[in-house]
C-alpha cells in the first residue's frame, strides 16, 4: 500500500468545494440590520406550521414518528458489530458451529472459550461455548475467521444487562429453532464476497 496520501500534509492545495454563503456582517450596524431582518421574516411561522402539521398528523392521522425504545428498535446496518448470534443450517436446523476453535484462537481479548467432545454420531460436538462480553471489544475477528459463517454479529447492540450470563452462552446466541425461518444471512464481517466463485479453482471429481 502506498503511503503517499498520508504524507501529503499541504491541505491548502486540495480540492475543497466552497459554499456560496453570504459574507458575515463586519460592523455593528450591519449586525443590527441582520438581526432585525431575521426577526421580522415570516420564516418563523413557516417553521411553526411544520410543527403544527406534524402534530396533527401524529395525533389524529396516526403518523407517529417516535420510536418506542426499548419496545421498538430501529434496524441497524449489517456492518454494525453488535452482540454475536449463532446461526443454524436452514435445511436441518442443526447449529452451524463445528467447534474448530478458530474464533477462540483469533480472539484478541481472549474472551471466547469452548469445550468440545466426540459425540455418539462420531462428530465433534460443542458441549459448552461462552463469550465473556465484559471483555469483548466487538472487533469482529471471530465472525471474519469463522469458516462456517456460524458466529456472526447480530443486531443486539445493548451491551448492558443485569446479568452477564444472560447473553453469553451458546444457547442464548443460537437462533431459536422456532424462529429458524426468520434467520437472516449475515452480510457483514466474514460474509462471502459476491465474486467468491471467481476466486476458487474447481477440483476434478471422479463421479
Amino acid at each position: 500500500m502506498s503511503l503517499e496520501q498520508f504524507k501529503d500534509r499541504n491541505v491548502g492545495t486540495q480540492n475543497y468545494v466552497k459554499l456560496d454563503l453570504d459574507h458575515s456582517p463586519t460592523t455593528g450596524w450591519c449586525q443590527f440590520k441582520q438581526v432585525v431582518k431575521r426577526t421580522f421574516k415570516p420564516e418563523l411561522f413557516v417553521g411553526l406550521w411544520v410543527t403544527f402539521r406534524e402534530m396533527i398528523n401524529a395525533l389524529f392521522r396516526g403518523k407517529m414518528h417516535t420510536t418506542q425504545y426499548p419496545f421498538e428498535k430501529l434496524p441497524i446496518s449489517p456492518r454494525y458489530r453488535a452482540i454475536h448470534d449463532m446461526l443454524r443450517l436452514m435445511e436441518s436446523g442443526n447449529y452451524r458451529c463445528i467447534g474448530c476453535g478458530l474464533c477462540e484462537k483469533i480472539c484478541i481479548s481472549d474472551c471466547i472459550s469452548m469445550e468440545t467432545k466426540y459425540d455418539e454420531n462420531q462428530r465433534k460436538e460443542v458441549s459448552e461455548y461462552t463469550i465473556n462480553f465484559g471483555r469483548c471489544i466487538f472487533c469482529g475477528y471471530c465472525a471474519e475467521v469463522c469458516p462456517e459463517l456460524a458466529i456472526v454479529h447480530g443486531g443486539r447492540y445493548e451491551t448492558a444487562s443485569e446479568q452477564r450470563a444472560s447473553f453469553s452462552l451458546f444457547e442464548d446466541m443460537l437462533t431459536p429453532i422456532d424462529q429458524l425461518n426468520l434467520q437472516q444471512e449475515y452480510a457483514g464481517f466474514g460474509a462471502i464476497s459476491p465474486n467468491a466463485d471467481e476466486n476458487i479453482k474447481s477440483t476434478p471429481l471422479a463421479y
Binding site: G99, G101, E104, Y118, K124
Partner: peptide, 9 residues
Amino acid sequence: FVYTSNAWD
C-alpha cells in the same frame, strides 16, 4: 483425546 482440544491451545 478425540475432539477435545486443538493442538494450538
